[in-house]
Amino acid sequence: MIKLSPFVKAVERALSERCKYATYLGEVTIDNPPMPYALVGFPKANYGDATTLDNTVSEISFLQPVTTVASTADRLLVVLDDVRAALEGYELQVGRQHCEPLVLEYCSAMLRDNQVNLPEKKHPMYAVDMWRIRAVNRFH
């Protein structure tokens, strides 16, 4: 079986190493985090239907959500470019799996987070990107 968690953690690691912004996994773990930042969400996995002779799943394909947050819309545009540049085409290194290069498959609109208040009664802006992750077990 191919486990999901190493892929999610590999995306977090890629952003932490290749991007200059703070990166969180699953949730922001501090109050009032410095902006901007990226949040690697938890995906719904779609395991492939190719099986091996012993009926174990040998491939995985899913959309990995990454939320990018910044204090203003114009800042979010710049940060999105940086986050996307760090991930587009990047090949995750995960155990014995062969991973296809990351592909951006969906981008949300830029949205205002009305549940969070910044100083001066502002609200942060965010967007959600969905990155296609595909991997298969290596057989050698």
Rank of each mutant, 00 (worst) to 15 (best):
D31P: 02
V103S: 07
Y90W: 05
G95L: 07
E17I: 05
L80D: 10
Q97F: 14
A14M: 05
D81K: 11
E17A: 12
Q64V: 01
V78D: 13
S108N: 00
M130E: 10
P65A: 07
E12D: 13
L87E: 03
E91H: 09
K9R: 15
D49W: 00
L4G: 09
V40C: 02
P34T: 03
A50L: 08
M1K: 07
S16H: 10
E91L: 04
S58P: 07
D82N: 10
T51F: 09
V94N: 12
V28Y: 03
L76H: 04
V66D: 00
D49E: 01
S58C: 03
T72W: 05
I30R: 08
P36E: 01
M1C: 14
M130C: 06
L87P: 09
V128S: 15
Q93R: 11
V69I: 07
A135E: 06
N46V: 03
S108G: 06
R13F: 13
I2W: 08
K44E: 06
E17T: 12
A135Y: 06
L63W: 08
I2Y: 08
I2R: 08
P36I: 00
V78I: 15
M125K: 11
V69H: 11
A86I: 00
L77K: 14
L63P: 03
W131Q: 02
E105N: 07
A45M: 03
A127Q: 10
M130R: 13
L63K: 14
T56L: 11
C99G: 07
M130N: 12
D82Y: 04
M110L: 12
A70F: 02
D81H: 15
I133R: 08
Y90F: 06
T72I: 03
Y47L: 01
R75I: 01
C107L: 08
A85G: 12
T67R: 11
N137P: 09
V57G: 03
A127L: 07
A70Q: 04
E59M: 06
V128M: 15
G89V: 02
Y24T: 01
Q93G: 13
R18H: 05
V11G: 09
S5Y: 08
V94M: 07
Q115N: 13
F62C: 10
K9N: 13
N114W: 10
L4H: 13
R132S: 10
G41W: 02
C19H: 05
K121R: 15
Y37T: 00
R112M: 09
I60G: 14
S5N: 15
V57Q: 06
M1D: 09
I133G: 11
A70D: 05
V79Y: 13
P43M: 00
E120P: 15
L92N: 02
Y24C: 00
K3M: 02
R132H: 05
T23V: 06
G95I: 04
K121H: 15
F139V: 07
M110H: 09
Q93C: 08
N114R: 13
N46H: 05
A70K: 04
N114H: 14
L76I: 02
E100N: 11
S61D: 05
L77V: 11
Y37Q: 00
N114T: 03
E120M: 11
N46K: 07
P6K: 03
L25I: 01
P36N: 01
L39Q: 01
T52F: 10
I30C: 08
T68Y: 08
R18Q: 10
K20Q: 05
E88N: 08
P119V: 08
V94G: 12
V103N: 06
R112T: 06
Y47P: 00
G89I: 01
C107K: 09
E12M: 14
